[in-house]
Design a protein around this nucleic acid. Sequence first.
DNA 1: GAGCTGACAATAG
DNA 2: GCTATTGCCAGCT
Length: 108
Amino acid sequence: MSSEGFFEKVWRIVEKIPRGKVATYGQIAYMLGNPRAARTVGWALHSMPKDRDIPWQRVINSRGRISTDCGEHDPGVQRMLLESEGVKFDEKGFVDLRVYQWRARMDE
DNA sequence: GAGCTGACAATAG
DNA sequence: GCTATTGCCAGCT
């Protein structure tokens, strides 16, 4: 609960994302109860420990597109990982959120 | 305690 | 669709 930082909450949700599905930062932020904390969600993934197996590649920005402002990360790698999981990308690098956006509840 | 940073979102041009 | 600007939140220095 309160003992956990914001990061662990994000990681826990990201870990719940099933294979072949994707979620947006805003969606995860909304699950955390802070629909405006999309920035913090992205930051949480950046500070993610390596001893944890977090499918960060399944977390993309709005419209189902990869922006990766960081630059240190590779959008090409993220796309490859998602395609490897069965997620199709558009020529412009967009994903069909209508089909691939992960819809889940906290109850799962 | 104040300021800065960051893998975003939304709006405007 | 792209670029620029603003707002938001949590952690770090």
